[in-house]
């Protein structure tokens, strides 16, 4: 009935968090560049980029789910927007659905993103280690 509101709320929070983190990361990078830093450290994927992937999943999913709710007449283009909001019994059911299905959706999407990010980090770490080993081997040969 209104389960998509939970991932939408999470999307709003993560988008704001991404903007704040992005700003801090830019400041940190400019400070590092002024102080002199290894270029390889700048190539590492920033957390804001990772978080942006979660934003896309949440916003995209919420948009398509909102459309589905509109299709089923659970959302209306005028106040109070949710048809369930007009009736206390329906509203109680909607709240129950939000606390079960809605929270489940937000948790599943976040978990999948977490696993995906962890796997990508491990791959990047392994590639980085392989590059270091190759450089060390070349140095020994010389």
């Amino acid at each position: 009935m209104a389960c998509f509101l939970v991932p939408t709320t999470e999307a709003i929070v993560t988008t704001i968090a991404t903007k704040i983190i992005e700003k801090k990361e830019k400041e940190a990078v400019s400070t590092e560049l002024e102080q002199g830093v290894e270029l390889s450290s700048l190539h590492r994927e920033r957390f804001s980029v990772k978080l942006n992937r979660l934003n896309h999943l949440l916003w995209g999913g919420s948009l398509l789910l909102a459309f589905e709710h509109f299709w089923h007449g659970e959302i209306q283009p005028f106040f109070p927007f949710l048809t369930a909001a007009g009736n206390p019994a329906d509203w109680a059911e909607a709240l129950h659905e939000m606390s079960t299905v809605g929270v489940g959706m937000a948790v599943l999407v976040t978990c999948v993103w977490g696993v995906h990010t962890w796997v990508l980090d491990r791959i990047a770490q392994r590639e980085g280690m392989a590059q270091h080993e190759e450089q060390a081997r070349r140095a020994i040969r010389k």
Binding site: L57, L63, L64, L65, M105, L108
Partner: peptide, 21 residues
């Protein structure tokens, strides 16, 4: 197309929870 992938995967995961419920 990455954005399109994210949209479809995000919605799929959400509908999967709906289907399980």
């Amino acid at each position: 197309t990455g954005v399109l992938c994210s949209m479809f995967w995000g919605a799929s995961l959400m509908w999967l929870v709906d289907a399980v419920a």
